[in-house]
Amino acid sequence: MDKQKWKHYLTVFTNNNLGMIGIAILLFYIFIALFAPLISPYDPTARVGAPFLSPNSNFLLGTNDVGQDILSELIHGTRISILIGIIAAFLSVAIGCLIGIIAGYYGGKIDNFLMRVVDLVLVIPFLPLMILLAAFIGPSFWNIIFVISVLTWAGPARVIRSQVLTVKTKGYVEAARSIGSKVSTILSKHILPGVVPIALSQFVLAASQAILIEASLSFLGLGDPFNKSWGTVLYYAQARSAFLTDAWLWWILPPGILITVLVIGFAFTGYSMEEILDPRLRKGRKSNE
């Protein structure tokens, strides 16, 4: 894709209020994740106070049942939650791109077979399969990423395939095929550049989905016990009966808010990117306004 088109996309995106809000939220979370050791007031694994302390000047969000600072847990948990979301989304979209490009470009029996596989993955009950698979392979950082990637690639694959079907009918692609260009050349120089923008928007939306799935699995006790994420914090809060005391205000509510705001940031960014790629969405929004 030429630089002029990327410049146009950037200009449209910077004029999108929701997109800029989404980017600001994501940058804020990324800053916390990168500099967690410097921002965190305490070591999240150390006992620094009495158990179940309410918020005070020393512990802004109080302490948990063993006296660990909850704010420090959440700051370090930002790094784990975002890292899992980004890696899982990358693998999910990469698998989806591979399947979607093969199916869309070759068509015929290959397309029919791969799309039936996609349909099968999409119709299988998601929640029971997610819990069963996570429980079967065991809790760990990479196992959670594997579960998320395996269960979420089908959606991006369908979207990428639709884009490939559109791109391969373009005149320059048909001209390249007519002069006998290699398939690898056509895919790398013509098909892939037309797929990248869609893949980026799918990645952003997949990341938000991955963070929600990780939080859900960790809350159910299927997360990595050696790396505290926001979902893990919620799991221990629920296991220690925080819902039955006032501790839910500082032990359960903050991680829930953090997850919600981050997902909103991803959603705003992803939807804005989709509007850039499909001008009809922008026209529809303006007409509704």
Rank of each mutant, 00 (worst) to 15 (best):
S188P: 02
Q202F: 00
A242H: 02
A176T: 10
L98H: 03
I32R: 03
I211M: 15
F90W: 04
Y105L: 12
T63A: 04
L98C: 12
I87T: 11
A215Y: 01
E73N: 10
N15F: 10
A242K: 02
W153M: 08
L205E: 02
D119A: 09
I75P: 03
I39Q: 04
H190S: 07
T45R: 11
W153I: 02
R161E: 05
T78I: 11
H8Q: 15
S216V: 03
R79W: 09
S40A: 13
I276S: 03
E174T: 13
R285C: 05
L253N: 01
R47C: 03
I99G: 01
Y236E: 08
G223T: 08
I86A: 09
L71Y: 09
E73K: 15
M115H: 05
R240S: 15
L38P: 02
A36H: 04
W6R: 11
V117M: 13
S287V: 12
G19Y: 03
A175F: 10
Y172F: 14
I32D: 13
G194D: 08
P139I: 07
E73S: 12
V12Q: 09
A247D: 12
S218C: 10
M20W: 10
V93C: 13
S181F: 13
W6V: 10
Y172L: 04
S229W: 00
R79E: 05
I21P: 00
W6H: 06
S149I: 01
I211D: 00
I95W: 04
V195D: 03
D111A: 08
I145C: 10
I257R: 13
Y271K: 15
V167D: 05
A239P: 07
L38H: 09
N58Q: 14
S218M: 06
E289V: 12
R177F: 06
P55L: 13
K7W: 01
S208T: 05
I198E: 03
R240C: 10
F113T: 13
E275R: 11
L165I: 14
G284H: 10
D43Y: 02
I145G: 07
G231I: 02
F35S: 14
G96V: 07
V263R: 04
I137M: 05
L129V: 12
L133P: 02
N288D: 13
S162G: 14
E274A: 13
F59H: 15
L27Q: 04
I95A: 12
N17V: 11
F266S: 05
G265Y: 03
K7A: 12
L114G: 12
S229D: 07
R161S: 03
L234V: 05
L187C: 06
I259E: 07
I160L: 05
F141C: 10
G138T: 07
S229V: 02
I95D: 01
F141Q: 08
L10G: 05
L212I: 11
I131H: 00
G138R: 07
A36T: 06
M115A: 02
L200Y: 03
L26V: 10
G108C: 02
L132C: 05
L60I: 15
Y105T: 09
V261M: 14
K283Q: 11
A94I: 14
S229A: 11
F203N: 11
A239K: 15
L220K: 00
I21R: 00
A267W: 06
I144S: 05
Q68G: 04
G85I: 06
G85W: 02
P279L: 06
L281N: 05
L249S: 06
D119M: 06
M273R: 00
V159P: 08
A88F: 03
A88R: 10
L165V: 12
S54D: 13
G270T: 06
G223D: 09
L98D: 00
